[in-house]
C-alpha cells in the first residue's frame, strides 16, 4: 500500500507541474522548456528554510512562490523578445543556468551533496509525516492548482491567452498589450511549479540538483503533449500515464538483464505512436 501512496504522491506532483506548464504552452502557445527550474527553486526554497531556519512548511511554500514568481518575471521579460523555436531554446538555456546555480552555489544549496533532512509538515494536531497523510496534503495542493488553473482557463483572461497563441499580432490589433498577459501567466505558472517543488522536497526529504535538469523539463513537456495541450484534464491524464507506465512495465516479466532497457524502449515507443496517430495528445485541442 505504501508503494501505491508513493506513486499517487508523485502523480499529484507531476499533475501540478503538467497543469501549470499547460497554461503557458497549451493555452498561450509559448514553448517553455524551463519549468524544472521553477520546480527546483520551489524545492530549494522550502528545503533551505525548513532545514536552516526551521520555519513552517507553508511559509517555505510561500517563500518558494515569491522567489519563483520574481525570477519568472525577470526571465519572462527577456523571453518576450523571442518567439517560436527561439523561445524554446532560450527558455532551455535558463533551465541550464538554474541547474548550474543549484549545482555550484555550495554555500546555499550544498551543490551535488544536496540537502538532506527536510521534514514533512505538521499543522496543529495534523501530522503529514506518514505517506497517506502526505498524499492527502498533495491532493489538496493539486485541487488548489486545478481550481486556480480552471478559473484562469475559463476566464476572459484565458480567452486572451488563446488569442495570443492563435495570432499574437491580431490580438494586439484588438488592443491587448500581450506582454502583460504573457508575463502574468508565466509568473502564475512558475508559482505553481514552485508549489510542486515544495511538496516534492518535503516528500522525498532530500533534494539535489540532479532532479531539476533540462531532462525534467522535457519530461513535464512530454506529460502535457501526451495528455493534450490546452487541456487541464489532459495534463492530469498525461501525468497519470507517464508516471505509472514505467512502474507498470516493471511487472511485464522481462528478463532482469534487459528489463530496464525494455522499459525505456516501450516507454519511448508509446510516446512515438501516440504522436503519430494523435499529435494533439489524448485530450488536446491544439497541437504545436
Amino acid at each position: 500500500m505504501e508503494y501505491a501512496y508513493q506513486l499517487a504522491i508523485l502523480f499529484c506532483i507531476y499533475s501540478m507541474l503538467g497543469i501549470s506548464l499547460n497554461l503557458v504552452v497549451g493555452y498561450t502557445g509559448l514553448l517553455s522548456s524551463t519549468h524544472a527550474a521553477f520546480y527546483g527553486i520551489g524545492a530549494y526554497a522550502t528545503a533551505i528554510t525548513l532545514t536552516a531556519y526551521g520555519v513552517n512548511f507553508f511559509a517555505g511554500v510561500a517563500l518558494g512562490i515569491v522567489i519563483s514568481a520574481g525570477i519568472a518575471l525577470a526571465i519572462g521579460i527577456v523571453l518576450n523578445r523571442f518567439s517560436g523555436d527561439y523561445y524554446a531554446i532560450v527558455s532551455l538555456g535558463f533551465n541550464v543556468i538554474a541547474y548550474s546555480v543549484m549545482l555550484n552555489w555550495h554555500e546555499l544549496t550544498r551543490g551535488p551533496l544536496g540537502i538532506p533532512g527536510i521534514s514533512r509538515p505538521s499543522v496543529y494536531r495534523l501530522d503529514f509525516s506518514s505517506n497517506f497523510m502526505f498524499l492527502v496534503l498533495s491532493v489538496l495542493f493539486l485541487v488548489a492548482v486545478w481550481l486556480i488553473s480552471r478559473f484562469i482557463a475559463m476566464s476572459s483572461f484565458g480567452r486572451v491567452l488563446k488569442g495570443i497563441r492563435e495570432d499574437e499580432a491580431a490580438t494586439q490589433a484588438f488592443g491587448y498589450n500581450t506582454l502583460y498577459f504573457k508575463l502574468a501567466i508565466f509568473v502564475v505558472s512558475a508559482s505553481m511549479a514552485a508549489v510542486a517543488g515544495s511538496v516534492f522536497a518535503s516528500y522525498v526529504t532530500f533534494i539535489d540538483p540532479s532532479t531539476f535538469t533540462v531532462m525534467e523539463s522535457v519530461f513535464i513537456l512530454a506529460i502535457i503533449i501526451f495528455g493534450g495541450l490546452s487541456s487541464l484534464k489532459g495534463s492530469v491524464i498525461g501525468a497519470l500515464i507517464l508516471v505509472l507506465l514505467p512502474e507498470a512495465l516493471r511487472f511485464a516479466g522481462f528478463p532482469a538483464s534487459i528489463a530496464a532497457q525494455m522499459r525505456q524502449v516501450i516507454y519511448g515507443a508509446t510516446l512515438i505512436i501516440l504522436m503519430l496517430f494523435r499529435p494533439q495528445g489524448i485530450f488536446g485541442e491544439f497541437k504545436l
Binding site: S155, S156, F157, K162, G163, F174, S230, E285
Partner: peptide
C-alpha cells in the same frame, strides 16, 4: 482573414469585448 482559428466562433467575437487590463480580464 485573420481569425483565432482554434477558438470557437463565439470566442472570436467575445475576445474583442474583453477588458484589456490583465486583472480586469481575470475577474471579468
Amino acid at each position: 482573414v485573420r481569425l483565432f482559428e482554434q477558438m470557437s466562433v463565439l470566442d472570436n467575437v467575445l475576445i474583442v469585448l474583453t477588458e484589456r487590463n490583465v486583472l480586469s480580464a481575470i475577474f471579468e
